[in-house]
Design a protein around this nucleic acid. Structure first.
Lengths: 344, 344
DNA sequence: CTGAAAGCGCTAACAC
DNA sequence: GTGTTAGCGCTTTCAG
């Protein structure tokens, strides 16, 4: 690496014997430049390997073509697949991304982070942090002071704010109904942490679906984990004690379901004959669990894509000084049937 | 969201009855401001919710406190854990991140991407794309034109370039030696795609370790996958045919190892009695496979952290117009012994 | 078709 | 202590 400075528009102008404005016209493909002049300027540009400064442009045009992305838990598969969708769509639409990661899901100290993004003149923000505890309280308090559009992912819909989420409730219904359809009647649940909106939705769906089918639901039929496999292990042990007659379990995510499978295997519980298992997420490895895991597929990638799409369209609208109409998007899940729930 | 414009330093100055210079001094905590003046300015700043523009600062200071990050395959666990380390360290050191994702690992069309980052005046670049095929050819061709320091992750060390990688060769030795230590003699290998540097290192270590132990190695003892579980399935089926006497297998990553476990379970092969299995990665779920997977732990997070640390220190050095000395860091792996390789 | 002047929001260098 | 001037790299506006 030789660390030369970058060439400036001034240097190009001087070397081409024109004014900076003419160079500007060339790099912006304006029509009103004489062909020969354009040619000459082009050659100097290539010779100096000149690249216009997006920074200077952002400053004068009051527009940076940069989006802020705030995420959390990148080491987990969901958030990183969502980010994957965000980067793909942003690239497609010609926006750069400024990335920030919260150290914890339930921080509400987000001001410095937000100011960091705004100081860099992002045109809009994707808030890709799921709703946990009170971590979205700031929305009511300071969102009004944010001078650019914001789109929220995986957040309980609320008026005046755009949200894009997966329909976790429907997913929970699909899972529970599937177990009922297999002839199971003692259907337990291992939930995610109940301060997570998604976890509450899935649990509620489990309860409602069972009630609707005339099955009695008790708190003893449910145990709570924290999404990790090790917490799934603990929760399942507990569930086996509090609900000995259990013949099926809807597990809040695939990681915890994996632990359920391992314990069942270790104890000689046959799956699905003695215990049918359904997970949630359809993460890349679920098809290779032992036995292969029936699960609910949610499209994290699509959530990210839609978020960027929606955000960019809001940016366009607000640039025209029109009023932004908040949207609430709920993406549907799909049931993926595998060996862990269906007797051959 | 009401989309007010942001306040400028000029507005603050006027309202406080001082010059912009004085405001500048206040927001930069310079000592030479009268206490009362400082107080008055502070109040106006708060009243207007003024935030200095990092963009304008970057322009004049020729320094953006922003790093470019180029990644690929965010939907996989390795790259996203590395990114996790990068964001953590960058935040700690006060740098923002501009994120780009390659759509494929082996693209060599990286010029537009690079120019995008440079146009936004990044102070340095973390190239977090593993070396695959010829995807690093550009390093020899155009790295010289890049005016800022670049640090490469997971790349074969080469002179004049800073690299940070995990020692895949040592990891492969650990895995193979462990299987030898368990008394296995027919040790097969399922490798990653051989255009990946990491995959070649692991395979080479397997070969060398066996030879050193006096065990004959044949190409029939190895099958190649593409890192995915489904490719692991195919490779293992093939290996069972080409190497029927196999009593142990070192699998190139945990995803493929998961498929090996599933097939073994399905066929009634006992693990580890009939077949000992060792994976590579120690990804979050390996401990809950059935049986729990022995594997090589590599610290992706640490790779990301070290990369940012090294990059920032290079930025400091090159700002002082000193010569940057390229570093080659090789992080060590660890063997994590679980049920898939050790007879109880 | 082309250029001169002004300014985006900020700070460095110098004056007073 | 504080203000003035100049300028980071670019585009907008207006003259010619």
């Amino acid at each position: 690496m030789n660390h030369n400075k970058r060439a400036t528009i001034k240097q190009v102008a001087r070397l081409a014997g024109v004014s900076t404005q003419t160079v500007s016209r060339v790099i912006n493909d304006r029509p009103d430049v004489a062909p020969e002049t354009r040619e000459r300027v082009q050659q100097v540009i290539e010779k100096l390997k000149y690249q216009p400064s997006a920074l200077a442009r952002s400053l004068i045009q009051q527009r940076s073509f940069t989006l802020g992305v705030v995420t959390a838990g990148l080491k987990f598969t969901g958030p990183s697949r969502t980010l994957n969708g965000i980067t793909n769509k942003a690239e497609e639409l010609g926006y750069a991304l400024l990335l920030e990661e919260l150290l914890q899901f339930d921080t509400d100290n987000i001001k410095p982070l937000l100011e960091n993004l705004l100081a860099r003149h992002v045109d809009g923000i994707v808030w890709a942090v799921p709703e946990v505890g009170n971590n979205h309280r700031w929305v009511d308090e300071i969102l009004n002071d944010v001078p650019v559009p914001v789109v929220f992912l995986t957040m309980q819909p609320r008026p005046g704010v755009s949200t894009i989420s997966v329909n976790n409730y429907d997913g929970g219904v699909l899972a529970t109904q599937h177990l009922l359809d297999q002839g199971c009647h003692q259907i337990g649940h291992i939930s995610g942490p109940q301060d997570w909106w998604e976890a509450r939705q899935r649990k509620q769906a489990w309860q409602d679906t069972l009630k609707k089918a005339g099955v009695i639901v008790a708190e003893a039929h449910c145990a709570e984990g924290n999404w990790s496999s090790s917490s799934g292990e603990v929760a399942f042990e507990q569930l086996l004690l509090s609900y000995p007659k259990i013949d099926a379990v809807f597990v809040g995510n695939d990681q915890m379901a994996l632990a359920v499978l391992q314990i069942a295997n270790r104890r000689g519980l046959r799956i699905p004959q003695n215990l049918a298992v359904v997970g949630f997420d359809n993460f890349a490895e679920s098809a290779y669990f032992w036995p292969a895991l029936t699960t609910i597929s949610q499209n994290h990638h699509e959530v990210g894509c839609r978020a960027v799409q929606e955000l960019v369209s809001q940016i366009e609208v607000s640039r025209r000084d029109e009023k932004v109409e908040p949207q609430h998007v709920l993406l549907t899940c799909e049931l993926v049937v595998r060996d862990s729930s269906v007797v051959p």
